[in-house]
């Protein structure tokens, strides 16, 4: 199955910056400017049909020039194949287009990535912290977040009577 996809990617209409294979699944790296179009194409195009966004996460590589990497894990229920799509983002401007209009599942994933890495998703309907309390300062999964740093315990919110 992944062989089919591999062949198909030879004629991929968008630029692929890097290609690889890990743990039996293909990985492609694409540019940030094209991400929306690429994802839409992958979701809708014949032979690709990635209808399921399995996961959306990010990694911080402090030694790289483009420090952040946003990773989409896609699966096609009709074609039964998987693909990893990566996008690299510079530290100074960690911003990328939201995938919420393509997959509803992206909503909370993107909020989590925003929460942990401070990566902003343009066009997200409700981009606020998901797991950490409001008022938390910084983004703890960035490698430069001080280990063991603790923040103020939030006060109980007022319950309207």
């Amino acid at each position: 199955m992944s062989g089919d996809l591999e062949n198909r990617l030879e004629q991929f209409p968008f630029e692929i910056l890097e290609k690889g294979k890990a743990l039996g699944d293909l990985t492609i790296v694409v540019s940030r400017e094209k991400i929306s179009e690429v994802l839409r194409f992958l979701r809708d195009a014949e032979g690709y049909r990635f209808d399921l966004l399995v996961d959306l996460s990010a990694v911080d590589f402090p030694n790289r020039e483009e420090r952040f990497e946003v990773i989409y894990h896609l699966y096609s229920t009709s074609e039964n194949h998987r693909l990893r799509v990566k996008v690299r983002l510079p530290f100074e401007e960690p911003m990328i287009d939201s995938a919420t209009d393509l997959w509803k599942a992206a909503n909370w994933y993107e909020r989590e990535v925003y929460d942990m890495f401070g990566i902003r998703f343009n066009g997200h309907p409700n981009l606020k912290r998901l797991l950490l309390p409001d008022g938390f300062e910084g983004h703890p999964l960035r490698k430069d977040y001080p280990m063991g740093k603790r923040q103020k315990i939030p006060v109980p919110v007022e319950v309207p009577s």
Binding site: L131, L132, P133, F136, Q151, I153, P154, V155, P156, V157, V159
Partner: peptide, 13 residues
């Protein structure tokens, strides 16, 4: 966790 803490406090109160 910290997000849970104020809820626990409210329940206790």
């Amino acid at each position: 966790n910290y997000k849970q803490a104020p809820i626990l406090k409210r329940i206790y109160e």
